[in-house]
Design a protein around this nucleic acid. Structure first.
Length: 546
RNA sequence: GCGCCCGUAGCUCAGCAGGAUAGAGCAACGGUUUCCUAAACCGUGUGCCGGGGGUUCGAGUCCCUUCGGGCGCACCA
């Protein structure tokens, strides 16, 4: 429409320009600025050598709106052209949402395989707050991407090999000797967490003192397999209770066993991205913009964690993912450039690897920071957190803020079942709607069939606001997927709940006017559908009663 | 020293590829219940968007610089 107007303006010599600029048509933030707005006049100001408002005036004169839902056009501000639609499009929404139910907001399948890898906590201790945030963000993101039309796989990478596992085994072995009455020194850099002692106690319950007499290697093998089994089971169970189900649990050990690490190092050597220095093998990550080169193979002949991680990421791409997303703690940001560099060196497109860094969580209790080092043993674990504040509050809290932002998690605050806690505000909205339907049921009121309902009876400002907000949902989901921004969904559902509460306090759903009553019942139905849909994405329950 | 993230209302934070008068929640004060859940609603006000410079018709948003906070800079993972 605008393009046609531009061209006829040029033909009539009202405007001079060579090419039509890349102008935008967008939904303004303020609804008084119309349903759609265009900035085309401002963009053309320079070339046409005219004031933007004058350009806008000439254009508007050329626009033919007959046969379109455009009700009127206004020029505002510096030269915005605002289009006001009649409400007919809005009244299409209820039927659409009601028919799609829990599928509302979904985009069409786009045939893109996406992997989201998150948490991937070391199986050497409890899950801490950083893991918890990563879990909430990763799972929510996976949900968002799924609804945006991608084929999504959730993956957990189990670091069950390498140096830290040796230290872990040392620690276990020392505890085993100690708990069976031997005076053994605990390794200096060992895992001092109390949970480890429990694990060893379980081990002793199953094996007794039989391990004492075994050859060292055999004993260590039994110990480490026992402990890993127990730790991984614990992690699975805890994450399941946090609402997270993985498609793939990937063992680092399998890379070692299949010789993948040696293979990938060989490829990097062949491509001349490696050199030796002081007995170690280095990767030229500086060639890819990293600050310094990185060791792949230590002088002692053992591969580094980085080498294993390269093999792991290569494996991801070999599995055919079009988009690989990792959720990492911000303390790992130094690894981003070199991992992308390594993928580029291997011939993969580094832009297909996105690493979302989330800032750290600071846990507060009674105004004091709670340290959460895995090794000191003074930590609040995820299962304790869930028992304390509940899964819903915890998940909502963790995704409410941008991953870029530090998260101060106040345990007392999150525990309060009060207005401090926004998750209840949203859940209450859902429960209230369910209550309306229960009340209707009790009074023998049944909503009419969709065809029999006239949605255009919804004329109140509060009703229109809800309709507009619900209409926004697919767009909101698409933005959240594109920008990897789970907090947008939390924000969205809070806004929608607020609009509902406001409506609820101003108007009655069950009333004497049966036409209006049906329209409002339908409005309530699609509001609860959308709230529940958004809460599902966040992994939060939508209770029918509170 | 170098790198990444953050700096927006008293507090905690939103703010999508630069758009119109910068928004929520909490806290504070006042009001709302013969009626579908008052865990709710309504009203009252606050901002040199850390500072400075630049790009642009237009900057909280992009670029440079500077200050403040967090994190990282191992032949650890």
């Amino acid at each position: 429409m605008i393009i046609r107007a531009l061209e006829s303006a040029r033909e009539q010599d009202l405007l001079q320009f060579s090419a039509i600029p890349e102008f935008a048509i967008e939904v303004p933030r303020e609804k008084q600025h119309g349903d759609f707005a265009s900035n085309v006049a401002m963009l053309m100001a320079r070339e046409a050598r005219m004031a933007p408002r004058k350009i806008a005036e000439s254009l508007v004169g050329m626009i033919n709106t007959s046969g379109t839902p455009v009700e009127r056009i206004e020029i505002a501000g510096a030269g915005f052209i605002n289009f006001y639609l009649n409400n007919s499009w809005l009244y299409e929404i209820p039927g659409l949402v009601y028919n799609m139910k829990d599928k509302y907001g979904y985009n069409e399948k786009i045939n893109r395989k996406v992997q989201v890898e998150f948490v991937s906590a070391n199986p050497t201790g409890n899950l801490h707050m950083g893991n918890a945030r990563g879990g909430a963000i990763g799972d929510t993101l996976a949900n968002i991407l799924e609804r945006a039309g991608n084929d999504v796989e959730r993956e957990f990478y189990i670091n069950d090999a390498g140096n830290q596992i040796e230290i872990f085994t040392d620690s276990m072995e020392a505890r085993y000797f100690q708990l069976t009455g031997h005076d053994v020194e605990f390794p200096e850099n060992g895992y001092a967490g109390l949970d480890l002692i429990d694990t060893v106690r379980n081990l002793i319950a199953d094996y007794g003192k039989t391990l004492l007499d075994m050859p060292r290697d055999e004993r260590r093998k039994i110990i480490v397999e026992y402990a890993l089994q127990e730790k991984v089971d614990y992690i699975k169970e805890t994450l399941l209770s946090f609402g997270i189900v993985y498609d793939v649990w990937f063992n680092e050990k399998s890379l070692h066993e299949a010789g993948k690490i040696d293979q990938v190092i060989q490829v990097l050597k062949d491509r001349d991205y490696c050199y030796e220095n002081e007995g170690a093998l280095w990767f030229k990550s500086t060639a890819f913009g990293d600050e310094k080169d990185e060791v792949l193979m230590r002088a002692n002949g053992l591969p580094t964690y980085f080498a294993a991680d390269i093999a792991y990421h290569q494996d991801k791409f070999e599995r055919g993912f079009d988009w690989v997303i990792n959720i990492w703690g911000a303390d790992h940001h130094g690894h981003v450039a070199r991992m992308k560099g390594a993928m580029q060196a291997l011939g993969y497109d580094p832009d297909k690897l996105d690493i979302l860094l989330m800032q750290l969580v600071r846990l507060y209790r009674a105004g004091n920071i709670v340290r959460m080092s895995k090794r000191t043993g003074t930590t609040v674990s995820l299962d304790e957190l869930i028992a304390d504040v509940g899964r819903d509050a915890a998940r909502f809290f963790f995704v409410m803020r941008s991953p870029d932002s530090h998260l101060d998690f106040d345990l007392e605050l999150a525990r309060q079942k009060s207005q401090e806690n926004p998750v209840y505000y949203v859940q209450y909205a859902h429960a209230r709607i369910c209550s309306i339907f229960r009340q209707a049921d009790a009074e023998g009121i049944k909503m009419a069939s969709l065809q029999a309902i006239d949605a255009s009876l919804l004329q109140e400002e509060e009703e229109l606001a809800i309709l507009r907000k619900i209409a926004d949902f697919p767009e909101e989901l698409a933005i959240a997927a594109r920008t990897l921004a789970p907090q947008r969904i939390a924000r969205y559902v809070l806004d929608l709940a607020a609009l509902f509460h406001s409506f609820y306090n101003h108007h009655r759903v069950l009333n004497d006017n049966s036409g209006l009553q049906d329209a409002r019942l339908l409005l309530m139905a699609i509001t609860s559908i959308t709230i529940k849909n958004a809460l599902d994405i966040l992994g939060v329950n939508a209770p029918e009663k509170m």
